[in-house]
């Protein structure tokens, strides 16, 4: 059962990722990216991390991608579809993709997969994540919160009309 769900999710994630890059229409591309993100959420559920899965859907598939969609819809990128990329761009993207593929290949084949360990009790539950965030990782957690707040205030300040 879990294997079957995993295979289906992997297939949709792959289809989503490939179509997101190759589709000529940017809006459809964004939708395939959303499909990819939702399929990844299924993996998190299979890996006994339902909380992360919910956050993946709420934050990435929900909030962030809707904003992407907004921008693309409002810019009306139809003319972009016909634009040809230059030779340099093509060569660079092939090199970049190749290096990334080699890295992935090395990670996938190098070193044996760790044996499946028994999960600790309450693994991946909201409670255990909350306890970890507010005890072991309290300082990094708070630092990131402050960082995000600063970024947010900065963004608001930049978009203000008549600002400096």
């Amino acid at each position: 059962m879990e294997t079957l769900v995993g295979i289906v999710a992997a297939a949709t994630a792959l289809i989503g990722a490939i179509a997101a890059v190759t589709h000529r229409n940017a809006v459809v591309g964004v939708l395939f990216l959303v499909l990819n993100l939702v399929s990844l959420a299924v993996f998190y559920v299979l890996l006994s991390a339902p909380f992360i899965a919910a956050l993946q859907v709420i934050l990435y598939a929900g909030a962030i991608m809707v904003l992407f969609l907004f921008i693309i819809m409002l810019l009306d990128l139809r003319r972009e579809e016909e634009r040809e990329s230059g030779l340099l761009q093509k060569v660079l993207s092939v090199i970049g993709g190749g290096v990334f593929f080699l890295l992935l290949w090395g990670a996938a084949t190098g070193g044996a997969a760790p044996a499946a360990a028994e999960l600790p009790e309450h693994f991946g539950s909201v409670e255990s994540i909350a306890v970890a965030l507010f005890t072991t990782y309290l300082i990094p957690f708070e630092t990131i919160s402050v960082l995000l707040l600063v970024a947010m205030v900065g963004a608001v300040l930049l978009t203000r009309k008549g600002g400096r």
């Binding site: 919910a54 859907v57 709420i58 598939a61 929900g62 909030a63 809707v66 969609l69």
Partner: peptide
Amino acid sequence: LFFLAMSSVGVY
């Protein structure tokens, strides 16, 4: 959270 996730998918 599942409810929130579904409502944010509904926006699409």
